[in-house]
Write a protein that binds this DNA or RNA. Sequence first.
DNA 1: CACTGGTTGACACTGAGTGTCACCGATAGC
DNA 2: GCTATCGGTGACACTCAGTGTCAACCAGTG
Lengths: 211, 211
Amino acid sequence: MRSRADNSLAERKRQLVADELRDAALMLLATKGFDAVTVDDIVAAAGMSRRTFFRYFASKEDVVVRFLADTSADIITELAARPPAEPPSVALRHALWVPLAACNDHPEHSERARVVVRLILDTAALHARWLERQIEWRAELAAELANRRRVDPHTDPYPRMAAGMALLALDTVLQRWQPGDDEQHLAELMDQAFAVVAPALDAPAASQAAG
Amino acid sequence: MRSRADNSLAERKRQLVADELRDAALMLLATKGFDAVTVDDIVAAAGMSRRTFFRYFASKEDVVVRFLADTSADIITELAARPPAEPPSVALRHALWVPLAACNDHPEHSERARVVVRLILDTAALHARWLERQIEWRAELAAELANRRRVDPHTDPYPRMAAGMALLALDTVLQRWQPGDDEQHLAELMDQAFAVVAPALDAPAASQAAG
DNA sequence: CACTGGTTGACACTGAGTGTCACCGATAGC
DNA sequence: GCTATCGGTGACACTCAGTGTCAACCAGTG
């Protein structure tokens, strides 16, 4: 019972097919727009069958969103690894930096990522799917934050809202980044966005629970 | 060129059909779950044709989301009407109270609204669509907030993020309200949620713009 | 009565997504 | 070397969402 991603013999092939599909899809979608491209177009470009596409991706949206959203576990891990005494705003900033770091370090990935971000923000269906993914992140971040503050996430709105504010900051960064010019600005944009929510993230944990 | 909702002769009929469709849809969806109900089921229950359904609602999701999300204009109007000197947290709290006021005043509507909220929060596709609608609200709220603070929404992340935080508060209220017991708690939940984001909403407008 | 504007149902169509099955290639056991 | 098996694949048929089209209908109006 091997659980994926272990032996290179067949798994390499799988990855190759997935990459081929993803590359073909992103190229077509980015140039023609989301609605103007059918799955048939994608598989034709990749030289595979329709059925195969859906074996690798749950939906047409999935190809695009997965490209940005596969790093959920890393974010939580990073947050859990931050020192407990660190202010939430700093810990969250570091955690959400994880998915952005790859773009920041590898400009060749960055360009493609920016195209995908633009595509997501411009396409209602994709934007919705992206937000859906963010909801999962928010729940996981909230659980970890509740753990940090030793509060009950069912009675205290803080964890959920703090997670939401952090993701709002990320969203704002992405929205301001995509038309941009220089990757180095990413860190600066994050700082600006987190500066706005920091007063709420780091407010003393008093009175607001009660209820 | 009358723009809908003026003469009662034909418009009443339209509204009647829309209500019939909506009622049938909500009843089925709430009891059987979103994915288990097809549009055919809905129109069969309402005694109309499939095609008619799509003349009134853009999609199956639309029936549900529109039930909660048709009040965008009222929210903006309320925000614009708040005194300019009022802190953003207070003004936004009042603005977002508008759609909730109806539920609070009419318990018979409240019960149905709560069912719809539960349905939306439980269904990924609906939740995403709901957030998509919120994005529009956020943009409109942000524009109004930028107007209030006399800042440029393109360089200052505050307006967009403040709007996002307010909607996050609303989201949190809805999430904590639906399993609840008493409608009067709505106001209290709003107060709690806004207390969390208030420190950021009302922070002095300094340094964070720059860039 | 004929005319007009708006609504409706029936039908056909595209496209997403799923289930099924036969096939193919590689590996394991004889 | 032959065969059983197993994962992946393509072909096909199917459901369902959503759209375009058209003929029929039902006011109100000349």
